[in-house]
Nucleic acid binder design. Structure first.
Length: 530
RNA sequence: GGCUCGAUAGCUCAGUCGGUAGAGCUAAGGACUCAUAAGCCUUCGGUCGGCAGUUCAAGUCUGCCUCGAGCCA
């Protein structure tokens, strides 16, 4: 029996080019997806783009493009970014995809039939940049939006359709109480709890005088509000290609999603509006919504006006994606904010990947070659290695510890646990001094030491593969094991997670390959003017 | 104004059930040699934001305050 595992990133809003935050969210989702694939789950990683709304329409017009042409252009940028970061997407959903429109209309009709949609009057100041109505007292002088100080909010007085969010207050509170893990991390959960406790108001789910959107099935003069539209992308993404778009068919295999990975800025939509919408349509709820943190650059908030944006594409081209994937997962606690500094990045990556992991494999293979006649896995009785062996003691339950960390999206804790083994291995070399054993003719001891070192490097490489698949593949290759962690599908039958994640898997006597650095040290790039 | 989160070594952060502070990085010194001048050892370094309280004992619990990030009205 295969277990399915569905992961989503947000559907990114295409009003501008992808930034480092998009790369971060998607890298994390990709690492989780890879880990679950490794464990034998059938995984669906969904990302996509949210393309409707007035803001997009205006951005396109300013650029002299049709909305669709504008969106196509930005979508190409996103696709390039995923490729650059070696992110393996299973589904890329665009809210302008025709089948998405079908799903949205069907969903809308369901909720309408349920009696949860009514017509009402919406008056107020509307910030196009936020795509939200604002209270007058929240606005700055001259009706500027506090979040977009350069934009003036517009007065709107229009007939809209509303969703009866208020009817779901109690059910939502029960959901949060019954399933404490629904919103992660706990600090985000607290925020949602206090928001909901304050009372939920119905929200407008349609717009008039806006062509760039999906027309309401019951009133084509209105289009669906972008958020109502975008959230449903998670469902329309599930439709099998070629399948007739249909709500029930779409959710048959991959729904509910196991986790929605999102930035903390869109928590409310995912933790409040979305479950209420699903309840109304009588669809199952996702298992978890995880709102991760943001980062600052050199201690300062990243913003265009500050001019300290980080171009993810340039970064990957400069340093290569593996080091970035590793750094972002290793150095930030997912869920908490962190600071990005290029100097620190280079330091960490060189220390961990080159000096720590890479050099461990390199020096051990060097010793095997030098102290044996052949380049084969040193022989020893693996079963006889005592449980309190300095490396076995760490390695024997490392797989399950790392699995637990991944289940909680604690990527940094997972990496840290793995590097405990790497550090212990480098220390173990000095403590046991194989060169002395060699000179003293302690052949059996030497073989065992070398075996435990190779095996520890292997295990570390295996468990790190969701973060650094190419380095892991190189490690495995040098150890004589042919698994391409970038093409697990083709080798899936050969990868038994339980076997590979256990310490002691490396077959004695196997052929090894000659040592090659698996990760070259990075140089800090000279300061460029972005 | 209400609420949430954070404030721990020069830097980035761990610290589960309260029991005299830990890791990694950086810096300085040392011994070694298998290695990508990598690795290992030692040292430097903290009145755990401040003030009270509870307790035999508080980074860890309670209250108030200061600063920072954020949510809401």
């Amino acid at each position: 029996m295969t277990r399915t595992f569905t992961i989503t990133t947000p559907l990114y809003y295409v009003n501008g080019s992808p930034h480092i935050g998009h790369a971060y969210t998607t890298m994390a989702a990709d690492a989780l997806a890879r880990f679950k694939r490794l464990q034998g789950h059938e995984v669906l990683l969904i990302t996509g783009t949210d393309e409707h709304g007035q803001k997009i329409e205006r951005t396109a017009i300013e650029a002299g493009l049709s909305p669709q042409a504008h969106c196509d252009k930005v979508v190409a940028d996103f696709r390039q970014l995923w490729q650059q970061y070696n992110i393996q997407i299973d589904r890329f959903i665009r809210t302008t995809d025709p089948h998405h429109e079908q799903i949205v209309k069907e969903f809308f009709q369901r909720v309408l039939d349920k009696g949860d949609i009514y017509q009402g009057q919406q008056k107020g100041w509307y910030c196009v940049a936020c795509e939200e109505f604002k209270d007058e007292r929240d606005l700055l002088a001259d009706k500027h939006c506090p979040l977009h100080p350069s934009k003036v909010a517009e007065w709107r007085d229009e007939t809209n359709y509303f969703f009866k969010l208020s009817a779901y207050q109690e059910k939502l509170e029960k959901l949060y109480a019954d399933r404490p893990d629904f919103i992660q991390p706990p600090s985000r959960r607290n925020e949602v709890l206090s928001f909901v406790k304050g009372g939920l108001q119905d929200f407008s789910i349609s717009r008039v005088n806006l062509d760039w959107g999906i027309p309401l099935p019951n009133d084509p003069s209105h289009t669906v509000y972008v958020w109502f539209d975008a959230l449903l992308g998670y469902i329309s993404a599930l439709a099998e290609p070629g399948q007739t778009p249909d709500l029930n068919a779409s959710i048959s295999k991959w729904w509910p999603a196991n986790v929605h990975i999102i930035g903390k800025d869109i928590l409310r939509f995912h933790a409040v509006y979305w479950p209420a919408m699903l309840m109304s349509a009588e669809l199952p709820l996702p298992n978890m919504v995880f709102g991760h943190g943001f980062f600052t650059k050199d201690g300062k908030k990243i913003s265009k006006s500050e001019g300290n944006t980080v171009d993810p594409l340039l970064l990957a081209q400069t340093y290569g994606e593996e080091s970035l994937r590793y750094f972002f997962l290793r150095c930030f606690e997912f869920g908490q904010d962190g600071d990005f500094s290029e100097a620190r990045f280079v330091e960490i990556v060189n220390n961990d990947l080159a000096n720590g992991l890479g050099n461990l494999l390199n020096r051990t293979l060097g010793m095997v070659k030098k102290y044996s006649e052949q380049l084969i896995v040193p022989s020893c009785n693996v079963a006889e290695i005592p449980p309190d062996h300095p490396l076995k003691s760490i390695g024997q339950d490392l797989g399950s510890r790392v699995s637990n960390h991944y289940d909680q999206l604690a990527f940094s804790a997972a990496a840290e646990a793995i590097f405990d083994l790497v550090r212990a291995s480098n220390k173990f070399i000095d403590d046991s001094a194989p060169w002395t054993m060699f000179k003293a003719g302690q052949h059996a001891e030497l073989q065992q030491v070398l075996y435990t070192l190779l095996e520890s490097a292997r295990l570390a490489g295996f468990l790190l593969s969701p973060a650094i698949p190419k380095i892991s593949t190189a490690i495995y290759q040098q150890l004589g094991l042919t698994i391409d962690f970038d093409h697990l599908q083709s080798t899936l039958a050969l990868v038994d997670f339980n076997a590979h994640s256990a310490w002691g898997f490396l077959p004695v006597g196997g052929q090894l390959n000659s040592a090659q650095p698996v990760f070259a040290r990075l140089e800090l790039a000279p300061e460029n003017s972005t």
